[in-house]
Design a protein around this nucleic acid. Sequence first.
DNA 1: CAGTGGTCTAGACCACAAA
DNA 2: TTGTGGTCTAGACCACTGC
Lengths: 239, 239
Amino acid sequence: MRKNKFMRIYEELTEKMKDGTFQAGELIPSENELAAQYETSRETIRKALTLLSQNGYIQKLRGKGSVVLDTSRASFPISGLVSFKELADQLNGTIHTFVEELELIRPEPYLQHQLQCSSKEELWKVIRTRAFDGERVILDKDFLLRKQIPQLTKDICEQSIYAYIEQELGITISFAKKEITVEPCTEEDCRYLDMKDFSYVVVVRNYVYLDDASLFQYTESRHRLDKFRFVDFARRHTK
Amino acid sequence: MRKNKFMRIYEELTEKMKDGTFQAGELIPSENELAAQYETSRETIRKALTLLSQNGYIQKLRGKGSVVLDTSRASFPISGLVSFKELADQLNGTIHTFVEELELIRPEPYLQHQLQCSSKEELWKVIRTRAFDGERVILDKDFLLRKQIPQLTKDICEQSIYAYIEQELGITISFAKKEITVEPCTEEDCRYLDMKDFSYVVVVRNYVYLDDASLFQYTESRHRLDKFRFVDFARRHTK
DNA sequence: CAGTGGTCTAGACCACAAA
DNA sequence: TTGTGGTCTAGACCACTGC
């Protein structure tokens, strides 16, 4: 057995919701029934169902059962840790990524603060633009610690840095903090983006942490106003 | 005993992180130690620690322990389900809420779609503006189903609809979906807000669901560009 | 090696919903 | 009353960390 049991059950159940075995609005089998079906304990089933609930697939109702939620209606990126590539895959229009800059730098004070590192640390600085249907509307500025990512190439940046880090290097991203504001556009925005008459950009600042709780990437994603969209699915944990 | 044991432990531990008993960067006692201290089973301790981890207080490290994260740096609203009142309590400036409209309506097609209700359903329509330091910068439009909220008064709307619903009516809000976009301002925005020269607003659409998975509130919160800020803390559940 | 967190089990009792 | 999900227990074995 390669995977955790509860994860396997989680995946089998999501499959059944996608292929229509379980329809939105219906109840799935009870925890006891599932425990019997999968020949496991109820706590293990509960772990799988908790995951389903946290990811918006079901809603547990005490005394009644677990109802399947309508996920088709929303197609929300589940809980916001979504890379550009994943997003692009979901869309139709023609999308291109241009690597504008790729170099090693020493951080100035602003970056030292954002990345909580010293001025001696070497940093990868990657600037990319994203074009939808020929218009450059997103400017992505990534800063990564050299000590964790020894090598970075233009090719990798054109694909997905994220995928490279996780799949090739085997580094696991654990959590991220996002901050969204709207700010006047800078000279840099005007240089790289097709700003039209817009004089503001939506700035998404992303702080990415690893499994060992160390901060390792700071990303600034700057979007032209009219092309920005963010979806979030928030579930209550604490009463 | 009024509360769940794991919730009591969760709260005691958050206390210790706030009052400095546990410092950021340090390890908290191991699960076995905590189980002994609190005279409970390890699984119950694990439930409390899982909550702490999901809410950004600690990071669990296999083989090592659980380290306390630095929450002071961010002061993020935990996972995005934050009412205006909670936010206001955290800020310093003078803040006022004005109830501009409060009435019962029948939904037009757009609202029928957003709330998934029929045209015969009665709806509360509440329009409020929020002023920071004398400037009206947020326009909140709330739509609630009459059948769930029989009575609504100007007083309640001036305080917190959210608090009224949860505390007075005993209805529990379970989860919410958020959508953030930037849109040209409408005539309504100009009428109610001090728009200055801004011709766009940040629109946050909120779909609020109850414990029984029924949609019950649709809220549109419209912010002047320069006063908008959103913070999100996303943790990875699925591998 | 000992200690950590991650998973899993087979029970138990509870609060709640529906018939 | 029966069946549901929610909580809790006292064990067990595993994978990983650090010494």
